[in-house]
């Protein structure tokens, strides 16, 4: 039983940080521009296919493929921002929800036609790592470490670099940021790009662990919503912790009851947090 728990906790943590990375993309975009990106799931799916194609077509190591995915993800995000988000950024919520959902429809529509909905997987292995009772696939361990590294880089970027500080300034108050000469449109596009890149990279990491289709992003998008609310909407570091919590729930709940209760528990927790602590578990009380 104890060994089982250790294994579950490890599994949960490892996948949790990857979830957290995906959610970070969603929460960054929300924090900066108050937009819930409903194309988040399909973007993750594109990340999965990006790594898959780099590996199967170009023969690249998946971790190298991730770099390409990150760059393309950033680019895609900026295109989405320019085409679908910029015009509605000050409109009522419904507008940006629907405009990003329209991007979702376009990606899924074209993706289904191009890739069909059959399952793919990235057949790449780094062997296994054995620590006491725990056996961890090498790719999972590397994925988790990579996710943590990206989180650290994001933190450094946001708090130590000029563009990062711009992003935080715009998130704080777009009008004032504009008044002191911060190019807010470019900062917004960049934030959307980074958010998208994070989602795509997280998708790529998940592709190394699980089989997927173009529709697989939907489930992870919902998970990202839960994580984002756990960690506090707009709080990237909270998202990492939220991701770990979600991973632990997914790892631990099946030890005690049927695995099908996991989503129920997740979503009830999600609603309760929204009602009781809308600033998230780690946010300061407003």
């Amino acid at each position: 039983m104890f060994d089982q728990l250790i294994v579950s906790v490890t599994d949960g943590m490892l996948i949790g940080v990857v979830y957290g990375l995906a959610a970070m993309g969603l929460t960054l975009i929300f924090g900066v521009m108050n937009v819930i990106n409903l194309a988040h799931g399909p973007i993750m799916a594109l990340g999965m296919f990006g790594v898959y194609l780099c590996y199967t077509v170009l023969g690249l190591n998946p971790f190298v493929g991730l770099i390409i995915v990150a760059v393309l993800g950033m680019l895609l995000g900026m295109i989405i921002y320019a085409g679908a988000v910029h015009r509605v950024i000050d409109a009522p919520h419904l507008s940006s929800l629907l405009s990003t959902f329209s991007v979702n429809m376009m990606i899924i529509g074209i993706g289904t036609a191009v890739f069909s909905t059959s399952f793919r997987n990235v057949n790449y292995s780094l062997g296994t790592v054995v620590i006491g009772p725990i056996t961890v696939p090498g790719t999972r361990l590397s994925s988790a470490i990579l996710a943590l590294m990206v989180t650290g880089l994001l933190y450094l970027f946001l708090y130590r670099t000029r563009p990062g500080k711009y992003i935080r300034a715009v998130a704080n108050n777009r009008t004032s940021a504009g008044l002191v000469g911060i190019p807010s449109t470019r900062v917004l596009a960049m934030s959307f790009g980074i958010g998208t890149a994070l989602a795509a990279v997280a998708g790529g990491l998940i592709a190394m662990a699980l089989p997927f289709t173009i529709l697989s992003g939907g489930a992870f998008e919902l998970k990202s919503f839960v994580i984002v609310v756990l960690g506090g909407l707009g709080n990237p570091i909270g998202a990492l912790l939220g991701g770990i919590i979600l991973g632990l729930i997914e790892g631990l709940v099946p030890v005690f009851t049927k695995v099908t209760w996991v989503p129920f528990i997740e979503f009830v927790l999600f609603i309760l947090i929204l009602l009781v602590r809308p600033q998230g578990l780690f946010g300061a009380k407003q």
């Binding site: 989503p263 129920f264 979503f267």
Partner: peptide
């Protein structure tokens, strides 16, 4: 709840209900 928070909650309720029925 207002704005995005309400929208998110309605998604949560739909998903929680689906997960409940499955069980």
């Amino acid at each position: 709840l207002r704005g995005a928070y309400f929208a998110l909650a309605t998604i949560g309720i739909n998903e929680a209900m689906k997960a409940l029925v499955i069980n």
